[in-house]
Design a binder for these strands. Structure first.
Lengths: 213, 213
DNA sequence: ACAATGGGTGAACGTCTGTGCACTCAATCT
DNA sequence: AGATTGAGTGCACAGACGTTCACCCATTGT
């Protein structure tokens, strides 16, 4: 016996998740059929039920999996920010953060594409799950920002609003990166755009409540 | 005879467009079937072909229609900006612009929801059409911004990047407004968030290239 | 008055869909 | 050793799907 029973089951489950991720890449979960997935995996349609109750349940599992990738990215970004004890410039933080985003989007294309797509087009339960996860990310970002120098004038509400803006911009950047796959010059351009936008936002936030008319 | 022949055809065409817009509201175009649409309209499935070659062609027509609504909004925003001859504050421009966005999203919910959803989840041709239209909007916004006071330090590239950021934030605001339908307090909160974000971005842009570290 | 047009019909096709049910048989438990 | 479990099978069903074709018949152009 080279494989235990639970191992074999887990392997099939993984194959189903991978197949689903690939198959819905150019449409959406709502257009994905149980039979397509089973066919791709190499099992009979009814075998699918041994692992998931429905395509929607599969979708929720894919949400979990995708956000593991996204949180890994956030951890990397945070590690950069808190890197040395010496104070670093905002511009440096921005550049490193964008680089981290780009490399993670490359490494986990399918997961980021899944989130971007199903966020607006998935089954209601999937949409809601993604919305909730993103909200958690925004809250995490807000507490990170609170630790940065210069936020004395930022209220809790301002932090929430700023985090929301930054996350929105980064989600959009990820979407664009995904749809520009394999066009390096377009990607460099997008990267530069993201850097500039993030800097503008930070500068705006730093002058917030002091530079109003 | 109360209706001419072309009128009757146009009426059926409209009914198809409306039915499709409603039916794909809680899924996506890629999950919409020709038979569902025909059934809702009250014609036999084959009758569909008298008006469109495929669901995808229908989708492209819906893109056109939806962007008529979106451009009407942009026209309203522009009218506010260029309102009087007296110089108005950026804050006032922002407030009025956000109000205009909110009221148009209310009035044309289905169109804005369609754009937001199919932008990432529609058939490839539809996605591309939407991406292209949004890019045109960004260019228009860039030329509008160039006319505003204070942009002496903004290069053409800066304008493009700034427009992209603003459009992204507003698309996101529209998405949120749509998914918060019928919860007035959530809507007011979103409106306030959008206002603050837009102000932060403008302030950041105004300090751009002068307040860098 | 007559012929042509074209929006809408209705049946039929082959294919794909989700799901139910009885089954096998190797891995696991007792 | 023997009983149990459970992942995967195979068949069958009813329904939805896109598309074809020949067919109406009211509106139109002549």
């Amino acid at each position: 016996m080279t494989e235990t029973r639970v191992e074999r089951k887990e392997r099939t489950r993984r194959a189903i998740l991978d197949a689903a991720l690939e198959l819905c890449e150019d449409s959406s979960l709502v257009a994905l059929s149980l039979r397509q997935v089973a066919g791709r995996v190499g099992i009979v349609p009814t075998g699918f039920y041994r692992h998931f109750d429905s395509i929607e349940a599969l979708g929720l599992a894919l949400v979990d999996e995708s956000f593991v990738s996204l949180r890994a990215m956030l951890r990397d970004v945070r590690r950069v920010e808190a890197g040395g004890t010496a104070p670093v410039s905002f511009a440096a933080i921005v550049d490193r953060s964008v680089d981290t985003l780009v490399s993670h989007v490359h490494a986990q294309r399918a997961h980021f594409a899944f989130i971007a797509r199903e966020r607006t087009a998935g089954p209601p339960a999937v949409r809601e799950a993604i919305r909730h996860e993103i909200e958690l990310c925004e809250r995490e970002l807000a507490t990170d920002l609170a630790r940065l120098p210069g936020p004395d004038a930022w209220s809790a509400e301002d932090l929430r609003i700023l985090s929301n803006l930054i996350v929105t911009a980064m989600v959009h950047t990820a979407e664009s990166l995904i749809s520009s796959a394999g066009r390096p010059e377009a990607e460099r351009r997008l990267t530069q755009t993201a850097r500039t936008q993030l800097r503008m936002v930070i500068i705006g936030a730093l002058h917030w409540r002091s530079g109003q008319d």
